[in-house]
Amino acid sequence: MLEKSEENPNHKGVWVFTEQIDGKLKNVGLELLGAGRKIADKLGEELVAVLLGYKVIELVKDLEAYGADKVILVEHELLEQFTVDAYTKVLAELTIKYKPSVLFIGGTLNGRELAPRLAARLNTGITSDCVDFDINSDGHLTHVKPFGKLMAKIICKTRPQIATAKPNVFKKLEPNWDRRAKIVREEIKINPEDIRTKILGRIEANKNPYGSIEDADVIVAVGKGLCSKENLKLIQELADLLGASVACTRPVVDRGWLPSSQQVGQSGKTVAPKLYIAIGISGATYHTVGMKNSDIIIAVNKDPKAPIFQIATYSIVGDLFKILPLLIDRLKKEVKEVKLSITTKGE
C-alpha cells in the first residue's frame, strides 16, 4: 500500500477525468471542467482534462473549448472499452507521475466504480456526490455535500483530493472553440492480463415510458402526497400536456409507484430543467439537492409550512386533487394548443 501523502505542497494541478463511452464524451466531465476552472483559477494552477480511450483524439477540441489548459491523452486498444482494472491502472500511474492536488471524477456508474478503487490504490481520501467546491484559507479543497437535513463541508488531508459529482450539478462553461490547450500524449503499458473482468456483451436499455429526466426541459415531479398509484394518471396527463418527463421522490419509488430511474435527489438523479413542477412533495434536503438548480420551480402542497416552499419560485398552497384537474382542464380547453415554446436545452 502507498504511504498517505499528507498535504504535500508538491501536488499541483486540478484534474478532471473526462469519461467517454463509444467515442462520446459524458456531459458530466465537461460540467466538472466548469467546476474545476473556478478551483484552478483560485489556486493559480493548471486545469487538466484526462482523456482515456482508443482513437479519441477528435474529442480533444471539446475539452479545449470547455476550459482545459492541458489535455493528457492516453490511447490504447485496451482502453477502448471501460474496465475498472485498466482505467485504474492508467489513472494511478499518471497521478503518481504528475502529482495533481485535485482529481474530479463524474458520478456515472463507471465513475463510481473507478473513483473509490483509485482512491484505495493511491491511499488518499475521496468524497462522493459533491454539490459545491471551494478553496479554504489553508488551501484545502472544501467539498460540500448533503448531510441529513444540513450540508457538510468535508476536507481531505491527503493528496490528490478525489471527489465525485453527479451529472447536472455543475454548469459547463460557454464553449470557446478558439481556445487551445497543451496536449500531452502518455504511453502506458497495459497487458491483457491486467484486465481481470472481461466484457462479454451489452444489453441496451429499454426506452423509458416516463421520459428520461436527466436532460428534460420540463419535469412534473410527484411525491407521497399523491396517495396512490392510481392517481399517477393525473400526473401523466399534465406531463403529456406540457411535453414533460415524470419524476418523483424516494418514497414514491419505495412504494413501487414509479421506477427508480425517475427518482430525483441524493440517492437518485440530479436535474436542472427550465421548469420543475413539484406536486405533493414536502421538500426534504435529500430531495431538493437534486432539483434546486432548476430555473423555475412551481410547488403544489396543501401544507403552507412545507419546506419545498422555501425554494419554490411559485408556491401554490392547496390540495393537489383540486388544483390539478382544474389546471389540466384549463390547459386543455382554454389554451387551444399547448405547445412548449422553449427550445431544447443545450441548443
Binding site: G125, K153, I154, Q310, A312
Partner: peptide, 18 residues
C-alpha cells in the same frame, strides 16, 4: 484522510410568489 469540517443550513432561494 477525510473529515467533516463544518455543517450548515442549506441556503434557501427567495420565493417569488405565493
Amino acid at each position: 484522510p477525510t473529515f467533516v469540517d463544518e455543517v450548515f443550513e442549506p441556503p434557501s432561494r427567495k420565493p417569488e410568489m405565493i
